[in-house]
């Protein structure tokens, strides 16, 4: 890895995000807080990909939104190139938005329905006065081709595309301003496997060319395996395991990660039922279990698990796990 690639681009340090849970509209009462993200730290180096996986509702999109500066952390801070990202205003905020772009899990809500695909892709180029009309049009055509669409589709509106095609329009728009970091929140789950493969190869090529970093949120573990250098596994607002991707996939340690990996469905007929089915109800982030948050469903639970919260620590160099089995 080159010296430039060693540099930390993004640091997420002890970040928490609590949402007030209210009842009533006019005279709302706060009933408690959803601890969507609870003391999370990780880094992303320039030009690398960090994969973020975990149970639905564990806080992945909330982290993405904080990194995009769409949401403020309740506690902790996020730094890009050693500069805090929250509290930016005016030109500085505009500049931040060109450096960090996103492709979200629902392309339906993220694309403006009144703009053509071409206009959506050109938006950041127009805002930053990147070039004249013809230059921008040529760039839009090139971006459309890069993501596997036809240049004539620039005239189509979002509702005229299929789900997967809309996702590619969103990626073209994210690439337009040549950002340093792209937050990819399930960018390929709506695509068929062939276009998914094309898109993953494309993302890798762009990364190699421009040294852009990715935060990749995905439910498909095979996608994470192919794409990311490091992988972080979350459960109910906490990191439970963090390691270089190859090390993690070779040697899964945390009981939750084991359950997750065992639930991966393989494309072969007549597969045996070897899955670890998690027992117990999915716990509520409103009232998370004491001690280890996984203790209500963990097959290895011990008495101390419900009392003491396990700390995230290295079990082998670089491979960190939060579980009392490894104390």
């Amino acid at each position: 890895m080159s010296a430039a690639a060693e540099k930390q681009l993004l640091r997420v340090a002890n970040v928490r995000k609590y949402f007030a849970f209210t009842k009533g509209i006019l005279f709302s009462r706060t009933l408690g807080h959803v601890k969507a993200v609870d003391d999370i730290s990780f880094e992303i180096r320039a030009g690398e990909t960090l994969g973020l996986v975990g149970e639905s509702g564990c806080g992945k999109t909330t982290i993405s939104r904080m990194i995009l500066n769409l949401e403020e952390p309740t506690e902790g801070y996020i730094l890009l190139d050693d500069e805090p990202i929250h509290g930016l205003e005016g030109e500085a905020l505009k500049a931040y938005r060109t450096k960090v772009q996103a492709v979200f899990q629902d392309p339906w809500s993220s694309l403006n329905p009144r703009m053509t695909a071409g206009r959506i892709i050109a938006e950041s180029l127009i805002v930053t006065k990147w070039g004249d009309k013809d230059k921008i049009a040529a760039r839009v055509a090139e971006l459309l081709k890069q993501v596997g669409l036809r240049p004539d589709q620039a005239q189509q509106y979002p509702h005229e595309f299929s789900g997967g095609q809309r996702q590619r329009v969103a990626l073209a728009a994210a690439l337009a301003s040549s950002p340093k970091l792209i937050v990819l929140d399930e960018p390929v789950s709506a695509l068929d496997v062939s276009i998914r493969a094309q898109m993953m190869n494309l993302l890798k090529d762009i990364q190699a060319e421009r040294n852009v970093a990715y935060l990749l949120v995905a439910h498909d573990l095979a996608t994470v395996r192919h794409m990311s250098d490091h992988t972080v596994v979350m459960y109910l607002g906490k990191i439970v395991e963090k390691a270089p991707t190859q090390a993690l996939f070779d040697d899964v340690r945390h009981p939750y990660t084991k359950a997750l990996f065992s639930a991966v469905l393989i494309a072969r007929a007549n597969q045996e039922d070897e899955e670890i089915v998690l027992q117990g109800e999915v716990p509520s982030p409103l009232n998370p279990p004491s001690g280890c948050r996984f203790h209500t469903r963990c097959p290895y639970v011990m008495p101390r698990c419900s009392q003491e919260e396990p700390k995230l620590r290295d079990v082998t160099p670089g491979h960190a796990v939060a579980c009392h089995l490894f104390d």
Partner: peptide
């Protein structure tokens, strides 16, 4: 498509 693999299962 938007579910993690354990909940999907």
């Amino acid at each position: 498509t938007a579910l993690d693999v354990t909940i999907q299962l």
